[in-house]
Nucleic acid binder design. Structure first.
Lengths: 241, 241
DNA sequence: TCCACACTTAAGCGCAAGTTGAACTATCAA
DNA sequence: TTGATAGTTCAACTTGCGCTTAAGTGTGGA
């Protein structure tokens, strides 16, 4: 009887519907597994995702199509392969925040927020850039040293900063030409603070791994700081880890 | 054949499973509607939630039980009623972040982030405290005026601040005695900046509504600044809205 | 004491949503 | 050209999960 077909009721339900359709899209077990895998930041083919979620190619294709139409993923064709990745860092962020609700985080008392270097919260990749305590600390130092400067929801690179990055082998001008966002502020769930994302964040992470200052942990989003990395980052950035 | 039963594969899937179960819990249409309603911050009875989601009492009971065991909601009994509310601000925050993925945000070009006072992004309640552009601006002013001071992931209240709040009718000492967090930093999705949550944030919102500086919009999380509120907040806080 | 109300529990039904098998397109490599 | 691989589409099937009916507990008011 009391169907809430008031004007307000309808509007609320419209919002709730959109909200619900996204959440259930993410929540379906197979899709959740795929998204979780893609959180590493790498692009995977449909078959790879099908295998890792342990379903048939047909199922995978159907699920991936849904994620694409919902704009949660993007695809690029390469020959007969299709490479899927998360649509943007916002998606990665939402996935992270959902997982933070998992009750596995055994009773985190108010200020027992001590994060050890072995903790996934300490140093991890978020989609394609560096997050966690280290990601935030690095971003902080870059800002303090005026290599990057805050600009609304984005960062920008100072002239001096561009030179500093060039010394590291990162061509800021080239990155700016890409159509994806250049240097966005990405929120870190565990730290509740900004870190650097966008093409600059991504190429910085790549560079740090290439130089062996950081090392990815296989099949995980965890990243560790090598001893060389520790030393060099202190020398270059006064960043003690 | 290639069931990924490697040690790593299993660990990844364990995480993905937890992740998936939370997301699908949120995503089910009826539960999504209930959660969306609870985002207003108020507590509702099982029947109220059943009506607003347009389902039978039995169904509602079942859904609510699931949300309780997942620690997404909490309940208190009062006589023969049970009052449900979101378990904490983190839950509210996650719900908000999910909804931010909705593609309804019609093409937000890089810096067209112009928010009008009629926009839900401008001024709204997040769970039980004030969020949106106004929430962030208010928090900023409170910090600039040293009423609150940053302390890691929390805020603290200065001695002068405690006096200022007492003049408003907020007893800081009493709030600190509560077992819930006193003054947390809560991230605002649309603004990507902090605002004040915790018991202090909640009682500040209540007080502002009580004094008729703000007014809740029925059946919505939107909140509007009254003209009296505009005037008083400028006088008291140099906050122009 | 009695009845109304708020909410819960259990059993069976039914449907939406995912899976499967088969057929189809497109790319690549002999 | 042929055959192998990557991915998609479609229709038939299977099933998990929410809904309904029905019965039960606990609280409050007359």
């Amino acid at each position: 009887m009391p169907r809430n077909n008031t004007h307000n009721g309808l509007r609320i339900n419209k919002n709730a519907n959109q909200f619900s359709s996204i959440a259930s899209l993410i929540g379906e077990p197979v899709r959740a597994t795929m998204l979780w895998k893609l959180l590493e930041g790498k692009a995977y083919t449909a078959t790879e995702l099908a295998v890792s979620a342990d379903v048939s190619a047909q199922s995978a294709s159907m699920h991936l199509a849904k994620l694409i139409t919902a704009k949660l993923l993007t695809v690029v064709r390469q020959g007969r392969h299709k490479y899927y990745r998360l649509a943007n860092a916002d998606v990665a962020y939402v996935l992270e925040s959902i997982s933070s609700l998992a009750p596995n985080d055994k009773l985190v008392t108010e200020e027992s927020s001590h994060v050890s270097p072995n903790d996934i919260k300490y140093c991890r990749s978020c989609y394609d850039h560096l997050a966690g305590r280290v990601g935030v600390a690095l971003t902080d130092r870059l800002e303090k040293m005026r290599i990057i400067v805050s600009a609304g929801q984005n960062f920008d690179v100072s002239p001096a900063g561009a030179k500093w990055l060039a010394d590291l082998g990162i061509a800021v001008d080239d990155l700016k030409k890409q159509k994806r966002a250049f240097a966005r502020k990405c929120l870190d769930w565990s730290e509740r603070r900004y870190h650097l994302s966008g093409s600059l964040g991504a190429s910085l992470l790549n560079k740090l791994i290439e130089m062996k200052w950081l090392r990815r942990i296989k099949n995980s989003r965890k990243v560790v700081v090598t001893s060389a990395g520790q030393e060099r980052m202190y020398k270059l950035l006064r960043l003690s880890l």
